[in-house]
Nucleic acid binder design. Structure first.
Lengths: 235, 235
DNA sequence: ACGCTACTGTGGTCAGACCATAGAGGGGGA
DNA sequence: TCCCCCTCTATGGTCTGACCACAGTAGCGT
């Protein structure tokens, strides 16, 4: 009865405590699977189940072979994990689509406020993406992918890793719906033009240090698209 | 070389597509592990790695034995998964503590706005928790746990499952820091009193339909505690 | 001195075995 | 006849051992 704890969970906890007390840090390599298994008194398969969880959550990267790139390495890049979690939860109906969109609006507004309040926001990446979106030979899917990157660039420029990861995840979770919505839009070229103009206006407002205006523009930008693509009732 | 795709990932993708096209829905049972393995042409251990990921992310619940509660069942309860992800990323320094706190402020403000704008918000659960916090024989950890539940109750009352899950996760990610901060506070009783009063004021503002005031109160409530507990520089 | 080769260490995968558990069903006794 | 207990079966949980693929390394032969 002492072993009500499942073996893989002990592995997960061991790694978490090692992270918390500094025994493991980003860039470090975990011990080999076989060694971990022996140290913790569990089977290698249990170790692997725990490592799989860490990998999907974006905490580690595994590599075969030998040398410095092999083994399990702490990377702590949360965007992939957040995306996977949100995507799966939306798929399993744990997260209603409307809530995802509404949450995105909240976070985008916060990003706009933060960037607009900064004296000299770094909008270089966003500006580059805006230029890339000016190309006229883009499919809707390609255009929307750049659109997503544009918003992600803003979030990253705001300097909040948590919000950036959440935005990336939310967007990824509804990507298929967004793309499907594009097919419902009659005049795609006009819509693309409009989106480009809205992006430009947002950057403008951020440059001028007008957080409130930027937030409003972002809000309208997003709700406008969703309304035209008939994705959600209202937001 | 054709098998650059890792076996467990094919399992994950199969389940995700089954969810998306409706072949699987909340409440359904997945096929037994051995059957899944045979169907997909992979080993049972690979199936288990995928299921472990789904379990930690809160998509499934597994049970031994036989009968309707056994096997892997789709549950789609995202809070645990979100908490695990955020907790681990904070531990691995993928998410700076400051960013977590700032994100929490953004979400709490959004919750306050949403609840304050509603004509008749359901604050019953929050009110019950406030009463529970009035007990004077609570340890700081117990008090803070109720505090966390109070804020979570507000998020859930706002009706946004995504925000509620994120709030629960963020709070869980910084729980150990919050508790550690309590020990740094000289006069705990005074602090507890103050927190209680602030909670009451927040509920009050929500009842009266004053979203802006509620948002400000929530903001000050949180930053005030963090400042007193010396957790973050400023927010 | 150089290049090839075998070795070693790592994750990736599979097969098989065994255990614990929980329901289902059947047989025997009251 | 009815009820209780025992066995059977289906399931996840775990371990062990084996093999493969891959990448760097060391050593050997030329």
């Amino acid at each position: 009865m002492a072993e009500a704890v499942r073996a893989w969970r002990t592995v997960l906890e061991k790694i978490e405590t090692d992270l918390l007390d500094g025994a493991l840090a980003p860039g470090d390599r975990l011990p080999p699977e076989r060694e971990l298994a022996a140290n913790l008194g569990v089977g290698r398969s249990s170790v692997r189940e725990a490592l799989r969880v860490l990998e999907v959550m974006g905490l580690i990267r595994t590599g075969t072979g030998s040398g410095p790139t092999s083994g399990a390495i702490i990377i702590a890049t949360p965007q992939g994990g957040m995306a996977a979690l949100l995507r799966l939860q939306v798929a399993a109906q744990g997260f209603p689509l409307d809530d995802v969109v509404r949450t995105r609006l909240v976070l985008e507004a916060a990003v706009a406020h933060a960037l607009g309040a900064e004296p000299d926001p770094d909008l270089g990446a966003a500006r580059l993406l805006l230029e890339a979106m000016a190309a006229d030979d883009l499919t809707p899917a390609e255009f929307l992918a750049l659109d997503a990157q544009f918003h992600l660039a803003l979030a990253e420029a705001s300097g909040n890793a948590v919000i950036a990861a959440m935005m990336a995840g939310l967007r990824s979770a509804i990507e298929s719906y967004v793309n499907a919505g594009a097919t419902r839009i009659d005049d795609w070229d006009a819509t693309a033009d409009r989106l480009r103009a809205e992006h430009g206006a947002i950057l403008d407002a951020l440059d001028r240090g007008e957080p409130q205006r930027a937030a409003t523009l972002v809000h309208d930008h997003i709700t406008g698209y969703y309304a035209r693509a008939a994705l959600v009732r209202d937001a």
